[in-house]
Design a protein around this nucleic acid. Sequence first.
DNA 1: CGCTTAATTGACGTTAACGTCAATACATGC
DNA 2: GCATGTATTGACGTTAACGTCAATTAAGCG
Lengths: 137, 137
Amino acid sequence: MDRILEKPAEKKQDLFSIAELADEFSISTRTIRFYESKGLIIPDRVGTTRVFRRRDRTRLLLILRGKRLGFSLSEISDYLELYDADNTQATQTQHLLERVNSRLSMLRAQKEDLEIAVKELEAMQEYALQQLEKQTS
Amino acid sequence: MDRILEKPAEKKQDLFSIAELADEFSISTRTIRFYESKGLIIPDRVGTTRVFRRRDRTRLLLILRGKRLGFSLSEISDYLELYDADNTQATQTQHLLERVNSRLSMLRAQKEDLEIAVKELEAMQEYALQQLEKQTS
DNA sequence: CGCTTAATTGACGTTAACGTCAATACATGC
DNA sequence: GCATGTATTGACGTTAACGTCAATTAAGCG
């Protein structure tokens, strides 16, 4: 019996080794193990060896995007919880909604900062282009 | 002679103590000294005491915005250089333009990530709202 | 089955970005 | 002119996020 293929729809292409994921995302295996130790991903095991499914691959994508946005791993951890929150009970759903909203306002604030920075740099760009015209004429 | 008031247009309201800035930006004086040690700001001195001008105050604003966007201090340092680059020579201006452009593409990539994250959360928000309707009906 | 390659665990190292003293100097109001 | 508050300069401590290395274990293969 191949216990890891127990679930019918689970094929080989849905299973990843630590090295495959490390390679795909250009991170080290150490980093992946570190994320597991922080509870950000929870791969299965075959014996002692980790086996990653789609869910963990997706989580890795979310983690890396979070990092690119400058969030800490603990913020990312909170963020990931939003993706598998329990919404069978109204109180839970209400709670989820609040957390989603607060996260949204963080992201929107960051977007404002970003847009200001972009505008400043675009102004610099334009200025530099004008200068170049003068200087090379 | 009050050397620090030498420049005619420089009034008291353009000068800040370390505590004033720390207070205004809700950071510690240690943080400000740390930024100085990294060359991010270069306050004047009256005796041994630091005196900050508008320029450094502005730089602090840029530093903090950079941090909110998730940039490291060394990235922020590069970023600050764009603001006081020499553009008297065409080669310098050309170089500045390249750096501005590369920074712009970083920011735009980040903006894409941000917008995807916002959309995902908005979808969650909508879903949660629908769930709540069902659950409380 | 022995060899090579891949994976695991534990321990210690490292870098960034400050925090936290402690000792000392400066300034200032009463 | 002295107590009291503010500033400065080391020096060491701390946390996050991994890197690095060594010792084992497990897995594939000719």
